Simulated assay, not measured.
Amino acid sequence: MSTILPNDYAEFLRDLKAKIQSRQARAILAVNQELIALYWEIGQQIVDRQETSGWGDAIITQIEKDLKREMPDLEGFSRRNLYRMRSLYLAYREQGETVPQLVAQTPVRQAWPITWR
């Protein structure tokens, strides 16, 4: 048994698909903004502690171990990625707090994916 579709159904479906794709793209950008802001904050906190409290580079390995132990399903916070977060902050800290906001507005792929299971 076949269903007879209204004449304007194809246009209706195209509009729905366009809305879905537009919202998906906006969601990806919002996630990227939040992740970049998080990476900036983590990098800033690591650098601040290293500069003010004398923490060495070994703390980054410790952070990785503790995050893995306390949040075993969390990914994206390896020692390498924590160093990248630190480097992101160090590279742009002279330009102030507007940098993570500006960078977050660019439509880029996540540099260091974080996934929760």
Rank of each mutant, 00 (worst) to 15 (best):
L13C: 09
R14Y: 12
L16P: 02
L16F: 05
A18N: 12
I20F: 11
I20H: 13
S22A: 14
A25M: 10
A27S: 11
A27E: 07
L29S: 08
A30Q: 11
V31H: 11
V31S: 06
I36N: 01
A37N: 06
A37K: 12
Y39Q: 10
W40T: 07
W40F: 04
E41P: 03
E41V: 07
I46W: 05
V47D: 07
V47Y: 15
Q50M: 15
E51Q: 15
E51C: 05
T52V: 10
W55R: 10
G56D: 07
I60R: 02
Q62F: 05
Q62I: 14
K65W: 04
K65E: 14
L67N: 10
K68I: 10
R69M: 14
E70K: 12
M71H: 14
M71C: 13
D73S: 14
L74V: 00
L74F: 02
E75Q: 12
G76K: 01
F77P: 04
S78I: 13
S78H: 08
R79G: 03
R80H: 08
R84G: 04
S87M: 06
L88C: 04
Y92Q: 00
R93M: 06
R93T: 12
E94Y: 06
P100N: 06
L102G: 05
Q105Y: 08
V108L: 13
A111Q: 10
I114D: 07
